[in-house]
Every structure is written in structure tokens, then in C-alpha cells.
Design a binder for these strands. Sequence first.
DNA 1: ACAACCTATGTAGTAAGCTATATGAGTAAT
DNA 2: ATTACTCATATAGCTTACTACATAGGTTGT
Lengths: 109, 109
Amino acid sequence: MSPKSYISYTAAVILQTLANGYRHGFDIMDATGLPSGTVYPALRRLEEAGFVESRWEKEIVARREQRPPRKYYDLTEEGKEAMEEAVRRYRLLAQSAPTPIRKPKPERS
Amino acid sequence: MSPKSYISYTAAVILQTLANGYRHGFDIMDATGLPSGTVYPALRRLEEAGFVESRWEKEIVARREQRPPRKYYDLTEEGKEAMEEAVRRYRLLAQSAPTPIRKPKPERS
DNA sequence: ACAACCTATGTAGTAAGCTATATGAGTAAT
DNA sequence: ATTACTCATATAGCTTACTACATAGGTTGT
């Protein structure tokens, strides 16, 4: 399908969190436990890669709710595909069992 | 329990692979799909941290089996504890569902 | 004989992740 | 009124992970 590159475990977690309805950086930190120094740079890279799109919350809204303005993120179609592909790949810890993955064995560095 | 530090996702995967009977670097690469440039440095750090112990295969054995000598690794008791603690923490992708982890919320950076 | 491949470990250099800190406005308590 | 806390985004600097390459002996194929 995609001739594109693999995404990291952390990137996949972030995309999945977005897919599950969490919509801004602080929210993702809360849901995942990842620190801000991981989440914000990762979101910037994901946007550069075209996997998410962002827009700032209107200042009026933020002021009305008495908090700093949020930056909202949405998954793109490519982002959704990359996430699904990654979920397929990062199943190791999930099963917490022998997992004798008889890997497809492509190239090895 | 342990006043010790968190280990990374990759480190946890490697410890778990060792716990499941894979015993040297190449074997771990095979089982996990992680590249050599990740696995060998990680094993060195895990040994420095006291989570694994290593010993070289005897040359006679390797020659008999017609291959390069392997470096075998074993989990220490601390390594086993660190792994179990990490498995508890890295469950996110596993469930592939909303996972509204109402995190203990300690300090945030 | 040489190419291509397999097992096995490793490093140099770059990209990504984490710790600690900063900023700034709001609320709450003393 | 100053301390402390919450929400929210962000970066500097160190650590970890990945890409690409190196080494080296063994086997297999042409």
C-alpha cells in the first residue's frame, strides 16, 4: 500500500489516542502519561509528515472557558492508515507471551 | 518497591524476549524485528544497569556448529522486576481501544 | 573463482524521546 | 499579596533508537 516509512511506537500511541477522541496535546499527555517533551515535538513531526492537521482554538472560546487556548489535532487519512499499520506491528508487549513471531524477514541492517 | 528508574518500551520488549527463551542478540533481532543498531547497544546498557548478565559461547562449540560465537544473556532478578513493571505500564496499543487511563497523575514536566 | 547469502556482533552518525525547566493566565487558600 | 496549584504549550540538552555500514567465516549456486 503505502511506500511510506514506519512510524515509532510513541507516534502510534499518539495517533491512536487522537483516533479515540482526545484532541489536543495536554489531553494526550493525560491519556497516555507521556511527558510534554515527548508529545509536543512528536505532534509537530506528525504534522510535518502529513499524518495530522492542527488548528488553534478561537481565543474567545478559551477566554470564556478561563484557560489557555488549545491547539486541536485531527488525523488525516494517511495518519489513520499509518496508525493501523503500526498497531499491526507493535503487538509484542501486548500478548506478554512467548510470541515466536516467525517474522517475514526482509532486509536486516 | 524499586526506587529505580523507568525503562523504555524497547528495553522492555528486549527483556521480555529474553524471558521467553531467546538468548542472544541475533535471536532477539529475529524475534522482535528490531535492528542490530538498536539491540546491541540496548543489551550493553541493560547489562550496565544490572538487568541482564552475559557470557560468550565457547569457541569450540561455535566452530562445531559452523557459525560465529554467540554472546548469551540472562535476566537478573532486578531485570525481571523491571520488565514486569514495564509490561504493566505499556499496555496502550495492546488494547487498541479508548483506554481512558485515569492516570495516578504524579508530577508533570 | 566468484557472487550471493546466512549467522553473528558491532559502530558512526542522525533522528526521536525524555528530564527538567520556562511561560503565562487563571483559581484557591492562607 | 504571596504561595500553591491547574491548564496549556513549548524548548534546551542529554539519552535512547534507528539507518546504514563494517567485519568475518561459512555455505550454496553458477
